[in-house]
């Protein structure tokens, strides 16, 4: 699911393995969007990493091999020191099937960006499916979306050749189903413009979490986070500026 969520944004990237788990940071070719992922050690039934190692993987190749796994298979990932290949083993305990695949690794000269700690003006958590719906609907009208966070709510608006559209979500607490709540923490009102093409792409991570958190400040990149039980997938998107 994680590979599915990011494979259309970045093609080749390093899986950085260390004591804390498997991490990844990569920008898209246009340097407009960045994905940062962390799968923590606790999320694995077994995890061992003797030395920090970067596994340079072509995500399309990894995706091809992962398609050979059944949903409930146990997956084991293995790499030696200074590896040429990443080994994947899929096991089905019921009929004792063992599938073994190797994918070739590559040397990727990856520049890790320093992402400054930011006190965001607005932090909004909403159902991830709702966010996906809004992005898809508005992309049919325009290539850009304005996102405004005020104490009234969060408003997504766009204008294109055929007309215009806007969706406003007000803060609401759903006691029975907290994952359907919308919460808005506001330090100051925020208004930004983003490319919908990227937002729709990020929404491929919707299956990872029932909620998504948008962190916004004026004139800085948007942070979109899908939290998992033992890790996260975060996307950063540079804003559109000026008129």
């Amino acid at each position: 699911q994680v590979v599915d969520a990011i494979k259309d944004l970045v093609q080749d990237c390093n899986f950085d393995c260390n004591d804390s788990g498997i991490a990844l940071q990569a920008m898209d070719n246009s340097h407009v969007a960045l994905v940062a992922m962390h799968l923590k050690t606790e999320g694995f039934s077994q995890y061992r990493c003797d030395r920090n190692i970067a596994l340079g993987v072509n995500l399309a190749s990894l995706q091809k091999v992962l398609r050979a796994a059944q949903n409930e298979d146990l997956l084991t990932l293995k790499a030696e020191d200074a590896p040429d290949v990443l080994s994947l083993v899929f096991e089905n305990s019921e009929n004792d099937r063992i599938s073994e695949y190797d994918i070739k690794l590559m040397d990727i000269d990856q520049e890790h960006l320093g992402i400054p700690d930011t006190e965001y003006g607005a932090t909004v958590t909403l159902p991830s499916a709702e966010f996906q719906r809004i992005c898809r609907d508005l992309m049919l009208i325009s290539e850009s979306v304005g996102i405004e966070a005020t104490k009234e709510g969060i408003k997504f608006s766009c204008a294109g050749d055929i007309g215009s559209g806007a969706v406003t979500l007000r803060q609401n607490a759903n006691v029975d189903k907290p994952e359907l709540s919308t919460t808005i923490e506001l330090q100051e009102p925020v208004a930004l413009t983003f490319s919908l093409k990227y937002l729709v792409n990020f929404c491929k991570a919707t299956g990872l979490s029932s909620t998504v958190t948008l962190s916004l400040s004026n004139e800085v990149p948007l942070l979109i986070e899908y939290k998992m039980e033992h890790g996260f997938v975060r996307f950063y998107l540079a804003p559109k500026i000026g008129d």
């Binding site: 407009v32 890790h112 400054p116 850009s144 800085v220 540079a238 500026i241 000026g242």
Partner: peptide
């Protein structure tokens, strides 16, 4: 229309 910025203007190479 608005101009698309890039992340390089906001994030730094270490």
């Amino acid at each position: 229309g608005a101009r698309q910025s890039t992340l390089g203007s906001f994030f730094t190479l270490p």
